Simulated scan of single mutants.
Amino acid sequence: PRRYEDRQDDLWTIYNRIQESLLKGGLSGRTAQGKRTHTRAINGIDGDVKLNRALWVMAESLLETLK
């Protein structure tokens, strides 16, 4: 979490943390070849809408499996 307030473990807070991290970029990771990489920020409205729609669908399906 980027802020202290985001340390809760409920679905809504985790959803918002993931959304913010993906939109702002800067997450470190590794490629399939093992090289270090960082995610880029999403600046375009089309990418933003696609990402939000995909995140919402994943959150809804996760919520259904938890019920």
Rank of each mutant, 00 (worst) to 15 (best):
E5M: 07
N52W: 02
T37A: 08
R3G: 08
D6S: 06
L66T: 07
D46E: 11
S61V: 12
R7E: 07
P1Y: 06
E20Q: 09
K35M: 08
I45F: 10
H38W: 11
K50H: 08
M58L: 09
G34V: 00
L63R: 11
P1L: 10
G34H: 03
T13N: 03
S28P: 04
G26Y: 02
N52H: 05
G26C: 04
R2Q: 12
N52V: 02
A32V: 10
S21Q: 12
D46N: 06
M58V: 07
P1E: 08
A54T: 07
E20L: 04
G26I: 03
N43V: 13
G26R: 03
A54Q: 08
R36V: 08
D48E: 15
R30Q: 12
W56S: 14
Q33E: 14
R17S: 10
D6G: 01
R36A: 14
D46K: 07
K24L: 12
L55W: 00
D48I: 14
G44N: 10
K35I: 05
A59I: 08
G47W: 01
H38L: 15
N16F: 04
T13D: 03
L66A: 12
R7H: 06
I45L: 12
L11A: 09
W56E: 13
L23T: 05
T65W: 07
L51S: 01
G29R: 02
V49F: 06
R2H: 10
Q19M: 11
S61Y: 10
N16R: 13
D46S: 08
L22T: 02
D48Y: 14
G29K: 02
K50F: 07
G29M: 03
R2W: 07
T31S: 11
A41F: 00
P1T: 11
S61E: 15
L22E: 05
G34C: 00
R3P: 04
A54E: 07
I45K: 11
G25Y: 02
L11D: 04
D10C: 03
T39Q: 00
L55R: 00
T65E: 13
L27M: 14
